[in-house]
Each structure stands twice: as structure tokens, then as C-alpha cells.
Lab assay of single mutants.
Amino acid sequence: RTAFSSEQLARLKREFNENRYLTERRRQQLSSELGLNEAQIKIWFQNKRA
């Protein structure tokens, strides 16, 4: 289980509010910017949509 920092969570929530689905390219960008792997971001979005 991933423990996200408050900064990472704030960024993910802001991104989710703008778009509930990420393109592969956007997921790669977020992964690089947040220091998370793409799978972690993908799962976070899946869980948030559920």
C-alpha cells in the first residue's frame, strides 16, 4: 500500500477534479513530477472513481 504525501494527494485530487481519466502521456508526466510510478497513479484514479 502506498503512503502518499499531502503534496502528492493535493496534486492528484486537483488533477482528478480537472479530468477523471488520465491519458497515458499525462500519467507519465504526473509519475515523473510526483516521484510515483505509473501504476500507483493509475490505481489511485481507479479507486477514486469507484
Rank of each mutant, 00 (worst) to 15 (best):
R1L: 14
R1H: 13
R1A: 13
R1Q: 14
R1V: 13
T2F: 12
T2D: 13
T2K: 10
T2V: 12
A3I: 11
A3E: 14
A3S: 12
A3G: 12
F4H: 03
F4G: 02
F4A: 04
S5L: 04
S5Y: 02
S5I: 03
S6R: 09
S6V: 11
S6K: 14
S6A: 14
S6P: 15
E7K: 06
E7S: 07
E7M: 06
E7P: 04
E7C: 08
Q8P: 01
Q8K: 03
Q8N: 03
L9K: 06
L9I: 12
L9A: 04
L9D: 05
A10G: 06
A10P: 00
A10Y: 05
R11Q: 07
R11V: 12
R11T: 07
R11G: 07
R11N: 04
L12M: 05
L12H: 00
L12S: 00
L12W: 01
L12V: 01
K13F: 12
K13S: 13
K13C: 15
K13A: 14
R14K: 13
R14W: 10
R14S: 10
R14P: 01
E15V: 05
E15C: 04
F16W: 10
F16I: 03
F16L: 03
F16H: 02
F16V: 02
F16S: 02
N17G: 09
N17Y: 09
N17M: 11
N17W: 08
E18D: 08
E18N: 09
E18G: 04
E18M: 09
E18T: 08
E18S: 07
N19Q: 05
N19K: 04
N19P: 02
N19H: 09
N19M: 04
R20L: 03
R20I: 09
R20M: 10
R20C: 12
Y21C: 07
Y21L: 07
L22W: 03
L22C: 05
L22M: 06
L22E: 04
T23F: 02
T23V: 03
T23E: 05
T23D: 13
E24M: 09
E24K: 15
E24I: 11
R26E: 06
R26G: 05
R27K: 11
R27D: 01
R27E: 07
Q28C: 09
Q28T: 08
Q28I: 10
Q28F: 07
Q29W: 08
Q29T: 09
L30E: 00
L30Q: 01
L30D: 00
L30S: 00
L30Y: 01
L30P: 00
S31Q: 05
S31W: 02
S31E: 05
S32C: 09
S32A: 14
S32M: 15
S32P: 01
S32G: 07
S32F: 13
S32D: 12
E33V: 05
E33Y: 03
E33I: 06
L34F: 03
L34N: 00
L34W: 02
L34V: 04
L34E: 01
G35K: 05
G35R: 05
G35Y: 04
L36W: 02
L36Y: 01
E38M: 06
E38G: 06
E38A: 08
E38W: 05
A39H: 12
A39N: 13
A39Y: 13
A39P: 03
A39S: 11
Q40K: 06
Q40C: 14
Q40R: 06
Q40S: 11
I41Y: 01
I41L: 07
I41Q: 00
I41M: 02
K42M: 15
K42V: 15
K42Y: 12
I43R: 12
I43Y: 10
I43A: 12
I43D: 14
I43V: 08
W44M: 02
W44L: 03
W44V: 02
W44I: 03
F45H: 01
F45S: 00
F45G: 00
Q46E: 14
Q46T: 08
Q46H: 10
N47M: 13
N47W: 13
N47R: 11
K48G: 06
K48H: 12
K48Q: 15
K48L: 07
R49W: 11
R49D: 07
R49V: 10
R49K: 06
R49L: 14
R49P: 03
R49S: 08
A50K: 14
A50F: 08
A50G: 07
